[in-house]
C-alpha cells in the first residue's frame, strides 16, 4: 500500500510541475488527451509496483516473426558453430 501512495505522490508532483506547459497551448483537446494518457500511465505504474504480471510485447513480436526467425536461427547456428 505504501508503494501505491508513493507512486500517487510522485505523480502528483510531476503533474504539478508538468501541467502548466500543457495549459500554455490553450487547447481543450490537448488537455483532455493529456489527462487520459496521464491517468493511463499512473494506472500502469500502480499495477507495476503491485507486481501484477504484464503480458510481454516481445513475445508477440516473436510470434509474428517466427516463420522467418526459426529457420534463420538454425542457419546461423549451422554456419557459425561449424
Amino acid at each position: 500500500m505504501i508503494k501505491v501512495i508513493g507512486v500517487l505522490v510522485a505523480s502528483a508532483v510531476v503533474y504539478k510541475l508538468d501541467y502548466p506547459t500543457v495549459k500554455k497551448s490553450k487547447s481543450n483537446r490537448d488537455k483532455f488527451v493529456y489527462w487520459i494518457f496521464f491517468l493511463f500511465v499512473v494506472g500502469i505504474m500502480i499495477l507495476y509496483v503491485l507486481e501484477v504480471p504484464f503480458p510481454n510485447p516481445t513475445e508477440w513480436i516473436k510470434q509474428v516473426y517466427k516463420p522467418v526467425g526459426e529457420p534463420y536461427k538454425q542457419l546461423v547456428e549451422r554456419i557459425v558453430n561449424q
Binding site: S27, R29, D30, Y34
Partner: peptide, 11 residues
C-alpha cells in the same frame, strides 16, 4: 491532432 509536439512527452 494536438497543437504541440510536447503535450504528451511526460506520460
Amino acid at each position: 491532432k494536438l497543437k504541440s509536439v510536447q503535450t504528451l512527452t511526460t506520460p
